[in-house]
């Protein structure tokens, strides 16, 4: 991997940061995003949606269905995460069986650095 020392962030104040991440721009982006969302729903007044199964012909079905299923998936993933998440180095911790040699090698490679 090419390792030139990476220059650190020279700009500290938010106002001097990249224009894209200034709070003002972000507020503007939210407005634009909201307008586009409204447009896609409003467009349904002008475009007739083909209905396959009934429910999918309701007004704003795709918007609501997309939003709700995504919220459901995020929440579901979060709940599953409580059960299944483990520390990052779970498989590299010494156990009674994992050869400590392997653990050491991985540790040396990573050298405390994030990889």
């Amino acid at each position: 991997m090419s390792q030139s020392p990476l220059p650190q962030n020279p700009e500290k104040q938010p106002d001097h940061d990249h224009w894209l991440v200034r709070p003002k721009t972000i507020r503007l982006l939210w407005w634009i995003f909201g307008a586009i969302l409204a447009l896609t729903v409003a467009g349904q007044f002008f475009v007739h949606f083909h209905t396959y199964f009934g429910v999918d012909g309701w007004f704003g079905f795709y918007a609501l269905y997309g939003f709700l299923t995504c919220v459901g998936m995020v929440v579901g993933a979060k709940l599953l995460g409580f059960l299944l998440k483990r520390p990052d180095d779970y498989y590299f911790r010494e156990t009674e069986l994992a050869p400590s040699q392997l653990t050491d090698k991985v540790r040396t490679e990573e050298g405390g650095k994030d990889v």
Binding site: F33, L37, G60, A63, V74, G81, R86
Partner: peptide, 24 residues
């Protein structure tokens, strides 16, 4: 409609998606 509202869900739920130093 579907994708953009999915995008809205992402940004609304962002606090719940904060990356943690974990594996699954």
């Amino acid at each position: 409609q579907l994708l953009l509202f999915a995008g809205l869900a992402f940004f609304v739920m962002l606090p719940m998606m904060k990356r943690t130093l974990t594996i699954t």
